[in-house]
Design a binder for these strands. Structure first.
Lengths: 193, 193
DNA sequence: GTCTATATCTTGATAGAC
DNA sequence: GTCTATCAAGATATAGAC
């Protein structure tokens, strides 16, 4: 299987379509036919770039995780305080949800975990581990600097915040409302003061 | 469409199977063939009880919501304090997840919201609204009684807790770990003191 | 309530030409 | 890189017998 960084422009358009479809209807909710329609090519042309659906799924998640990681690094550079970093992190989710009630790719695939190829599942897991570790780190640094007070272990709080963010998107979509992760940062940060 | 309370024992076994399948692989992850295998009858026999998949989905969610509501009433009777009620509420989710990393039916269907029949979506929405209202009520009563301190509006906190619970199941499954909603009550209640 | 048989469509995937 | 043609399997669903 090729690496996501080596894909051609034609393949990238397919990955774009697949990413958008997974966000909206999930891995088991879209087909090669859907992708081909969105990109404007025929089904076998999609298979030419990604022989199996599993390979396509893997590339989608790998590229997503890579881009997300870049945003995390950017947040680290732009914000000095834990509160600032956590707020910016939550904003990533708010912005995603604000775009047509889009879910996090890995939130969607996490729910579908039992019904997707193992190779895709592995990538989803990596995304969550990376995010939980990054959040725990931000919380620990903030506590050491005396900016925030941790009433629970940092790892537990990190998991908790990530859960609330992913869950708020799921809830918002399920309730068919525009209110998604917008309040999560507010409530979470209030609990650290 | 018939009401969930009027289903025959044969139909109930089909609903059991469908509920378990939705929990595990989602609405778009199971087929009538899967149901027929689990129940031990043929596909057309499943259609005899539930002509369309949408009708089956509706009955699954209606029964689930009804049972869940009964548990909420029970919690109201058994526990006097807000903390006790919230802890018992969180335990409902923990117990579900502890059973083979099962998700909440409506958490799963909330994610799949864009890819399920409208009639099912309506039921999912009702479940979330009911739960959010119940939680907001518990929080309000607890605050009035002076048991807990609300740093944010009750409705916002209710949504937040529900998000964290649903999200923690999704996260746990995505990370393939047994740790699910167990810590949510702990962290949430700590933030109210 | 359950069955066999069947219809119709969609799905993921391949062969081979241009 | 894209196409037409094709396939085998699976999906939802119906007809009609027992």
């Amino acid at each position: 299987m090729k690496h996501f960084s080596e894909i051609t422009p034609a393949a990238a358009r397919i990955v774009d379509a697949a990413e958008s479809l997974i966000r909206s209807v999930g891995y088991n909710g879209f087909s090669y036919e859907d992708v081909s329609r969105m990109v404007g090519i025929r089904k076998p042309s999609v298979h030419h770039h990604f022989p199996t659906k599993g390979e396509l799924g893997v590339i989608v998640v790998q590229r997503y995780t890579h881009r997300f990681t870049e945003r995390l690094e950017e947040i680290g550079r732009l914000h000095e305080t834990a509160a600032g970093r956590l707020q910016a992190y939550c904003d990533l989710f708010s912005e995603t949800y604000a775009t047509g009630r889009s879910l996090c790719i890995c939130g969607m695939l996490g729910a579908e975990s039992n019904a997707i190829p193992d190779v895709v599942q592995v990538e989803v897991r990596r995304f969550f581990e990376d995010n939980a570790a990054w959040l725990a780190d931000v919380l620990k640094q903030g506590a050491q600097a005396g900016e925030i007070q941790l009433k629970c272990p940092a790892g537990m709080l990190a998991d908790y915040l990530l859960s609330a963010l992913e869950g708020s998107m799921l809830l918002g979509r399920g309730r068919q409302i525009d209110q998604g992760p917008q309040h999560v940062a507010e409530v979470f940060l209030a609990s650290l003061r």
